[in-house]
């Protein structure tokens, strides 16, 4: 930021000497710099703390025994540590099964989404075809239409699934696709999944930024369209695609809307989590043998644990991919 006079005086010159030489400018500048970094550090610390704090609170609340919750002398650190709450939450959310289901559905769906959105984005970025503007406007429409607007119609569509009345013609009835993962995979393959318009937009921005000369060289050397795409474009685009994939995976993992509509026949963690309260009373009733009212504090504690359990795999994933992720996003802007 400030170019001080080290060049002229050598780095070991006395600060005050240098300050005198610069007629007080150096002192002013240094104080300014220190002030800025202190303010910056405070601001960053405050905001970071605000982001991290709920996680920490959830963790500490989660390992408390129930009596610590009502003990007003216990605030942050538990007096009686227990892992029993986790066991209860695991049972309430049918943990290994629901997590496994969440994992494979998220992976499947986000892979499908990324493949299709990458292809579409490349098409929009590189090719000129009639009605291109119109179709791109449709992508923008896809971004801004809340999926809730069409959920009823979509739901009906899949309950009575039929392509041009063909099934009805042959088998006499329509197929109910709502119980399988197929409708959502179909939607993902056709870029209609969660926030897919956004991925198309992001990837298109990236592909537009890559110089065309690379592909032209490949074409001249006799490389086909698909070959060029796979061998020339994809390797460079990897960081951007990876970050889109990460978005897609994470958002799918925590998504409730599409999950509730399309994957209702599987035990998915997010739906299990959202209905955890309703199952709590029954659980405690069977455990203790009598009907019980679950206190609100206890409910809150168990929900916190459920949220934490939902976040932990994502946070671990994020820790590993964080570097590529951040750098790729920073890079996507730097290529004009």
């Amino acid at each position: 930021m400030s170019k001080d006079n080290t060049v002229f005086l050598g780095s070991r010159a006395n600060f005050w000497d240098r300050n005198r030489l610069s007629e007080g400018y150096l002192l002013k500048k240094t104080i300014g710099r220190i002030c800025i970094s202190v303010v910056r550090a405070l601001l960053l610390f405050g905001l970071c703390f605000m982001i991290i704090q709920p996680l920490l609170t959830r963790f500490s609340k989660g390992i408390m025994e129930e009596r610590d919750l009502y003990d007003s002398t216990v605030r942050l650190l538990p007096r009686h540590v227990t892992l029993d709450n986790y066991r209860i939450v695991f049972e309430l959310t049918s943990f290994p099964t629901s997590m496994l289901n969440t994992f494979w559905t998220s992976l499947l769906v986000s892979v499908c989404q990324i493949i299709s959105t990458t292809l579409v984005a490349y098409g929009f970025a590189r090719y000129e075809f009639p009605l291109k503007k119109f179709w791109f406007a449709c992508v923008v429409l896809l971004i801004i239409v809340p999926p809730q607007t069409i959920q009823t119609a979509l739901y009906m569509n899949f309950v009575n699934f039929d392509i041009l009345g063909l099934f009805k013609l042959f088998t006499g009835s329509t197929i109910n696709l709502r119980t399988s993962v197929l409708p959502y995979v179909l939607m993902s393959l056709t870029c209609m999944g969660l926030k897919n318009g956004l991925y198309i937009y992001m990837l298109r921005q990236y592909f537009k930024g890559v110089p065309t000369s690379l592909e032209e060289a490949a074409y001249v050397d006799g490389c086909g369209t698909m070959h060029t795409f796979v061998k020339i474009m994809l390797p460079d685009a990897f960081p951007t695609i990876a970050s889109c994939f990460l978005f897609s995976f994470v958002w799918q993992w925590t998504d409730l809307f599409y999950t509730r509509n399309f994957l209702s026949s599987y035990k998915i963690y997010s739906t299990e989590m959202s209905t955890i309260v309703s199952r709590m009373a029954r659980y405690f009733a069977t455990e203790q043998g009598t009907a019980v009212v679950v206190p609100d504090g206890r409910q809150q504690q168990l929900i916190s644990i459920a949220v934490l359990v939902c976040c932990i795999p994502l946070i671990i994933l994020y820790c590993f991919t964080q570097r590529t992720f951040v750098e790729s996003l920073a890079m996507s802007g730097s290529k004009e």
């Binding site: 299709s116 292809l119 579409v120 490349y122 098409g123 929009f124 090719y127 075809f129 179709w135 449709c138 992508v139 896809l142 939607m187 393959l189 056709t190 870029c191 209609m192 198309i200």
Partner: peptide, 10 residues
């Protein structure tokens, strides 16, 4: 062809 998935889905 590249944008076909999107058009179909849309």
């Amino acid at each position: 062809l590249f944008v076909l998935p999107f058009i179909l889905g849309f």
